[in-house]
Design a protein around this nucleic acid. Sequence first.
DNA 1: TTGAAAGCGCTAACAG
DNA 2: CTGTTAGCGCTTTCAA
Lengths: 348, 348
Amino acid sequence: MARARISDVATAAGVSPTTVSLVLNDVESRISEETRRRVREAAEAVGYAPSSVARGLRTRQTRTIGLISDQIATTPFAGRMLAGAQDAARENGRLVFLVDTGGDDVIEREAIAALSAQQVDAMIYACMWHRVVPAPEGLPAGTIFMDCRPEGGGFRSVVPDDREGGAAAVRELVAAGHRRIAYLDTSDTPIASGLRYEGYRAALAEAGLPFDPALHVSGDTSAQGGRAAADRLLELPEDRRPTGIFCFNDRMAIGVYTAAHHRGLEIPRDLSVVGYDDQQLVAAEQDPPLTTIALPHYAMGRWAMEVALGVRAEGDEDATHLMECPIVRRNSVGPPPAQVAKPSRRRA
Amino acid sequence: MARARISDVATAAGVSPTTVSLVLNDVESRISEETRRRVREAAEAVGYAPSSVARGLRTRQTRTIGLISDQIATTPFAGRMLAGAQDAARENGRLVFLVDTGGDDVIEREAIAALSAQQVDAMIYACMWHRVVPAPEGLPAGTIFMDCRPEGGGFRSVVPDDREGGAAAVRELVAAGHRRIAYLDTSDTPIASGLRYEGYRAALAEAGLPFDPALHVSGDTSAQGGRAAADRLLELPEDRRPTGIFCFNDRMAIGVYTAAHHRGLEIPRDLSVVGYDDQQLVAAEQDPPLTTIALPHYAMGRWAMEVALGVRAEGDEDATHLMECPIVRRNSVGPPPAQVAKPSRRRA
DNA sequence: TTGAAAGCGCTAACAG
DNA sequence: CTGTTAGCGCTTTCAA
């Protein structure tokens, strides 16, 4: 049996299609209560559900949103970001088209075209790592950039506040009494790592702690890379060796765990560690569970969708919104071993 | 400036809209080459892109697919499954609506209604763990169940072949020479664990190895749970203790690692371990990297989309497709310690 | 308080 | 080889 149309409801209720439309869309309140009831009953009876396609053609509003992302598949973060966007869309009665381009420019172009052809009401362009990206051609005005910023501006964007996050990580270590704090950095993701490094330096300065270049090492963003970099740190002579390590991400922090274990160092008794990302099934499952800075993926997803829908007012057409990265305290931070335990008074 | 319509192209090319439609859709080859060229040029010139909405209304085919899932956000597997479905959709010129219900029945009902209103051409209903689920009402005939099976049948479905996967894990251990092989089970997910257990028993039997109930222990599906269960196994007297452990999943396998380390056991020298899931950033990042059975999420996603689109012919309207779970060999399996090293000859 | 009629942009019979 | 006409299912003037 075919779908019921508005005219079926009209016939069943003995009114015109106009009236049905008016009633079902709650517009034109001057329709009599009696008629409204009849219409609703008829709609129910024939199992009527309006066709979004026909409505979209007529109103030029499809109540759909396009979400283009470069890497849904290969990162465990995607889910949270999608969930945030998804929830906000649903709460506002919108459906979302999801396209994963795998980073391929041709696919991306086709996706933008297909989404435009579908007349989506808005578009979100998401990256899986905080980056500055060239804005693809054909993106409609008002597109929101999520976890990335458009080169040269022109669009609103939301990204994690990596600078503050880095500072928060270091402050946590400072508060526990550490004075020799290393930053285990990477060069794989310039934007985020640079920002976190700035936060590291700022927090050091604000605590009156000197910056020691030997405590700033790099590796690639894997457990392997973390371990290699940590080895260099732990080979330092006792009095120059860090008592706390802030890692660019959780995976590298796992490498630090491994390096520490192989030297008989126990965490957090002999070494404190703070990660970044709060990666699902990684940070919390370590032994001991890792204290880390959470990437606010869910919040970014929700924010992006809400401003895309115009539900959340955001002044500037061209502004970057910085989303706070909250600290998640677990058990990888303790006081530094032995004598250094007394917290330093700042001098500034 | 507004979108160009088909009539704009027609005017520009000096033909009728019909001709434009015919040319652009590559139908009716009797249109002259000359006209075709003019039409194409005109379309290009005015920047014409057909409206999918109008076309959908007219043809009753929207070239969109609805994908409903219960848990995108909270599992790291979702990505692979989505990617598989996504890729297949794109290759066939389809766009996918993604809805995450979070397992909420009301949201699920609304999603089904909204997707039907959008007149999606097909629907996929996905679960994030291999389960038997009551089929929600309102699902269109031909809906594909992904990683779950509908209670009472009536729909096609695709699920991992957990039984064979379990057998493969045990065979790997058998091939390495192990004779006392434990199954570290769970009761959290009845379907998958039961099937893997069957595979475990079958592989044991096929190798002529006795089943020892003491080697079948359970815990909850976390590193914690795995550790607790592993402890019980490792407390067994030397001659009854397993030399190889097949774990329900990778997270529990991590718990086995922890339990082993705390007893000074080294993997794989003193104990071999096989996981299940091949969980991103978990299995491969362990020390040593974990040998495991991969859940074929990408393949299931692709399969589901292809049969939903009718691209892949599948006979039975009501059949369950079993997807192979391939083994991923890394470094957590070695020969059993000491004397038991000689592989047993089967008797059957 | 309600209905008639037009039209969103496209495709598909059918005519020429 | 191409154009005319109708209509997909809805909303929205405008008129009654």
